[in-house]
């Protein structure tokens, strides 16, 4: 393929439009994780919650015939499953990395198990009609930009709303301060009358909820069916995004779009073939994260008590 076609407007429009679609699950996941990490709980298990969300969203959308029922059930599945992680790592104070990894194994196994048992071994699951793009009157007519940003499906628009809403809550409400306090200094937060455990559990459940929607967006917005391990590491990319965006949901929105576009590019290259092996682009989000940790590591300040279990009565 030649240079002109790679950088033609049509190619770029299609690429970035697909990039936006690819970024939807990343936005939900990273915004959710931003909230829980602010309160001190790491979203290692994001990957698993996405799988739960993806599977149940697909199942219920298929059975009910309604995509919205699907999204809702996906979110609920993500949230309920995240309760496991919350109970284990917050209430029982177990190591978040171990609980998270075990939860991911559980989620992969469980969704595959159900998928096989319900839909059989054939990989040709029944496809459902996905969410259709909604052109925003006026804005979608802007050349290039309109097609990329204003002709997307409802979950894309809602993801922006969610990121903005979370940004607002974190910046402008007392809740945002409380979350930060719990993640920075739970002992002081407790002294200020904040129920540390409750805040951590609820913020983690919010993360699960968002991860569930992220999963739902995979099955109901892009693919139209559930395939095994459909999340394909997106949960971990979300973790990277949260670090890169320094726990800011709006920056996470932008970073998600960047990583989504890289993913879109990689898919295209895999189909079309290119001088650069597509693997480079698959690995790019992870490479960028690791490099940023190295280059800006000292300036990136995570919530101080991130990943540290809090014990109420200790001496």
């Amino acid at each position: 393929m030649n240079e002109t076609s790679l950088f033609s407007a049509a190619f770029l429009t299609a690429l970035f439009s697909s990039g936006v679609r690819q970024s939807i699950p990343l936005i939900y996941g990273s915004v959710g994780d931003t909230v829980s990490e602010r309160s001190g709980v790491m979203g290692i298990s994001l990957e698993g919650e996405m799988l739960f969300g993806a599977f149940f969203a697909y199942l219920f959308a298929l059975r009910s015939g309604s995509l919205w029922v699907g999204v809702l059930m996906g979110a609920v599945a993500g949230m309920l499953s995240s309760l496991i992680v919350a109970v284990w790592s917050v209430l029982f104070r177990q190591d978040q990395s171990i609980v998270g990894i075990m939860f991911n194994i559980l989620a992969t196994g469980f969704t595959n198990f159900l998928n096989r048992m319900i839909f059989g071994t054939s990989n040709a699951n029944i496809s459902i009609d996905t969410f259709q793009p909604i052109a925003i009157p006026g804005l979608s007519k802007i050349p290039v930009v309109g097609e990329i940003f204003f002709n997307q499906d409802i979950l894309a628009y809602l993801s922006v709303v969610l990121a903005a809403a979370v940004f607002f809550v974190l910046r402008r409400t007392k809740l945002g301060l409380q979350l930060g306090a719990v993640g920075e200094n739970p002992r002081a937060a407790q002294a200020a009358g904040i129920p540390v455990y409750r805040v951590r559990v609820l913020s983690y459940m919010f993360c699960g909820f968002a991860a569930g929607v992220a999963g739902a967006s995979l099955t109901l917005s892009t693919v139209g069916t559930f395939t095994e391990a459909i999340s394909a590491g997106r949960g971990f990319i979300c973790l990277a995004i949260v670090i890169l965006s320094r726990w800011n949901p709006l920056t996470a929105l932008v970073a998600s779009f960047g990583f989504g576009s890289i993913q879109a590019l990689q898919i295209r290259l895999q189909v079309q073939g290119s001088a650069l092996p597509y693997q480079v682009f698959v690995a790019l989000p992870y490479l960028i994260t690791v490099l940023v940790l190295a280059l800006a590591g000292h300036n990136i300040r995570a919530p101080r008590e991130l990943g540290v279990p809090f014990e109420k009565e200790s001496r």
Binding site: D95, F103, G109
Partner: peptide
């Protein structure tokens, strides 16, 4: 995939 479920459950129960 049932084995994954079993493995994960075992560790979660141990932690508990």
């Amino acid at each position: 995939s049932f084995t994954s479920v079993l493995e994960a459950l075992i560790v979660l129960f141990i932690l508990l």
